[in-house]
Design a protein around this nucleic acid. Structure first.
Lengths: 158, 158
DNA sequence: CCACAATGTAAAGTAACTTTACATCAAAAC
DNA sequence: GTTTTGATGTAAAGTTACTTTACATTGTGG
């Protein structure tokens, strides 16, 4: 059904050991579940969780399959496998760009509707959370996230 | 090898659509990779990524398999499957608690070493990040994470 | 024109599950 | 005290989401 969620309660005091690993996991899983739910409620019941590998930032619109594989750090075969499914379901297509005969990946109108559903869900979450923790605090939170994600990409930090 | 990581660069301007989903994913994946790497470097090369399902907060020490399954939101069979592997590898054992004849899951000494490696890794990351984004900002970040993860557990928020 | 690396994809194998099924155990109902 | 009932453990088979291996194709620098 959905992703395993952690236990029913997080202890108020998270002492000695740094538990931000667990916290990140919980929040991230929650976002995923909400996104998947939003997509399904938008009428795309055949969209599977695994498809997020393709339908995530950066979107594959106009990208080559091999480039996609490199960015998502999957094998070309795995990308091919998911793309075939998504093409079958009508969310993407592989066709040649004008003037070229290289086949590239493009989102179909249905694919763009998925993206719209995801964005709508995220905007709603953004709003909800801004309200719950305070707009300024949440904006700071996202700023730190942005900074950390940039660090995380560096060659091999440390 | 490791988890697929996102592209090489995150655009400076993340405009209209809220991209904190992607940011959370990137940071969370980075933490996972670091933890796995730390475990492997500590000499436990046979620890697989899937084993995090068991070796995550809350730790299964003294827990019943079915309780574990409920908390991690996996089937009892899946938990059983992972526990069998981990028992084979010497990281957990299933034995009866004193006075009872119900078999419970316990970490072995080797299992506790894995936990120690994870904690050491997280503490190091905590230190590194506190330095990089500023101690106060990072503490605020963790506070918001804590608050959001609590919200995320509520019955069905919204 | 010709190596030569990058690309696409088919086929088979594998890991990590879920579903189904069933036997066992434990507490509640009678 | 037995019976029923629900929770538990686990075996077996099926499924999904991959990886590995292999190979044919394509574009490109020499």
């Amino acid at each position: 059904m959905s992703i395993p969620l952690p236990p029913d309660s997080i202890p108020d005091a998270l002492p000695g050991p740094p538990f931000f690993g667990a916290l990140l996991r919980i929040v991230w899983q929650h976002v995923r579940e909400r996104m998947l739910q939003a997509i399904h409620e938008a009428g795309f019941a055949d969209f599977q969780e695994a498809h997020f590998a393709v339908f995530s930032f950066p979107l594959p619109d106009g990208m080559r399959p091999s480039e996609l594989a490199r960015q998502k750090r999957m094998s070309r075969q795995a990308v091919n496998y998911l793309l075939s499914q998504l093409e079958e379901l009508g969310y993407v297509e592989r066709r040649a760009a004008d003037g070229s005969d290289r086949r590239l990946v493009y989102l179909t109108p249905r694919g763009h509707e998925i993206v719209a559903a995801i964005f709508a869900c995220l905007r709603q979450l953004h709003e909800q959370w801004s309200e719950e923790v305070g707009k300024e605090r949440f904006d700071d939170f996202v700023d730190v996230l942005k900074q950390l994600s940039t660090k995380a990409q560096e060659p091999t930090n440390r």
